[in-house]
């Protein structure tokens, strides 16, 4: 037992180093996905037929393929034309993959805000862009937080896929430890615990963000079941 404990104490730093890389990969691809998602989501709703068509094509293709396959295809495509280090290529590939899902999150959030908000914004003289920036998006972002929290957790889990590109994130480190100590349960178990702690932190963090930016007294679809206060009439 104490031998296991000793091994654990020695492998933790290695896994933590991997955790830093995992978080790096997850965060970067999440941010890239956010920009792509915003762009594609807005293009799909407000863009011309051509833009809309391209958006739908992109979303359909990405969503139909497993992320690891997208990762390999994009990695080999990207590194053929640009000499990118595997880490960057992996982040870019995951970001492009995440962008498809995030654009659907944005689209459903924008559609939930409703057309009448746009109507009212136009009625007071705002241009379409002003209406989108000042009225639609602020409300859409609030609505998007719960599903986005889901996507963030998913990205952290997907970051493990870059182990296939030999990037030293948690899974790779765990594999190394498991091979050298011959204690797979300990190695992968510890990795799983680290993933759990990170995801738990992300979810809690986003939950408190949601509370912080919540519009007072407004019941959202997600909060109705949790709320015990009566609706303000």
């Amino acid at each position: 037992m104490s031998q296991n404990l000793l091994i654990l104490i020695n492998l933790i730093p290695l896994l933590l180093k991997g955790a830093v890389v995992s978080v790096e990969v997850a965060t970067s691809s999440l941010v890239i996905g956010l920009f792509i998602g915003l762009f594609v989501g807005l293009g799909r709703i407000y863009g011309s037929k051509v833009i809309s068509w391209f958006a739908i094509l992109y979303i359909t293709v990405i969503r139909a393929t497993p992320p690891i396959v997208s990762l390999f295809v994009l990695y080999f495509v990207i590194s053929r034309y640009v000499n990118l280090p595997p880490l960057l290529a992996g982040i870019l590939a995951l970001g492009i993959s995440s962008g498809a899902y995030q654009s659907e999150i944005m689209r459903s959030a924008i559609e939930s805000v409703g057309q009448s908000q746009m109507l009212a914004a136009r009625a007071v003289g705002m241009s379409r862009i002003q209406a989108i920036t000042n009225i639609i998006l602020p409300q859409a972002f609030r609505l998007a937080i719960p599903p986005w929290s889901n996507e963030a957790a998913q990205m952290l889990k997907n970051s493990s896929l870059v182990y296939a590109l030999s990037i030293p994130e948690i899974l790779r480190q765990a594999q190394y430890v498991s091979a050298t100590t011959l204690k797979p349960f300990l190695a992968f178990g510890a990795a799983a615990v680290i993933y759990f702690i990170l995801n738990f932190g992300i979810n809690r963090g986003l939950d408190s963000l949601e509370k912080k930016v919540k519009i007072p007294a407004q019941e959202s679809v997600y909060s109705i079941s949790k709320s015990r206060t009566s609706l303000v009439s």
Binding site: S116, L119, A120, A121, I135, Q139, I215, Q218
Partner: peptide, 9 residues
């Protein structure tokens, strides 16, 4: 408007 359409946020 009939449904007021105030900016909720």
């Amino acid at each position: 408007f009939q449904d007021f359409n105030l900016f909720n946020h």
